[in-house]
């Protein structure tokens, strides 16, 4: 079981992340890539985080997934700094012997990254408006639902 996580301003290549998971020898790899959504005149999205906590918390989230599913590997990448529409923000990938485990653990990881990792998004628009993205109650519900989920 290998856990690999990275937080930083650099872009990443999903193909490289997937290839690293494929090399682990399982029969199944699943992944999620999150991108900056355009529209409504959005020009930039800034991602702030709590540096002293982020890596530790991402590792805890990955360890939680590893304790719930028989995984061969987890790779998580989360970007920080100023991004534009279409830019990649986050990658979560899992490798396992079977598809159901890979798919479910991947969904768990992105739900928990949204609700349990210390990142904050601020949107800037073409007309000069700026606003901090508000947490969605439905994201907390989705993350909490995993507490009652039996593998």
């Amino acid at each position: 079981m290998t856990i690999h996580s990275r937080v930083g301003p650099e872009d990443f290549d999903p193909a490289e992340e997937l290839a690293a998971l494929e090399r682990l020898g399982g029969g199944a790899v699943a992944s999620f890539t999150g991108l900056v959504r355009g529209g409504d005149g959005l020009t930039t999205l800034r991602l702030d985080h709590y540096p002293a906590m982020t890596e530790a918390q991402v590792t805890r989230i990955a360890a939680e997934a590893a304790s719930r599913w028989p995984l061969l590997g987890i790779r998580i990448v989360h970007r920080i700094g100023t991004l534009e529409p279409g830019d990649r923000i986050v990658f979560v990938g899992t490798a396992s012997a079977h598809r159901r485990v890979a798919l479910e653990s991947c969904a768990f990881l992105i739900d928990w990254m949204k609700s349990h990792a210390p990142f904050w998004k601020k949107e800037s628009f073409a007309d000069g408006r700026e606003r901090w993205v508000e947490a969605k109650a439905e994201d907390v519900v989705k993350a909490d639902a995993w507490a009652a989920f039996h593998n």
Partner: peptide, 8 residues
Amino acid sequence: IFPPVTGG
């Protein structure tokens, strides 16, 4: 101290 998180 911070607002509810909004990463991912």
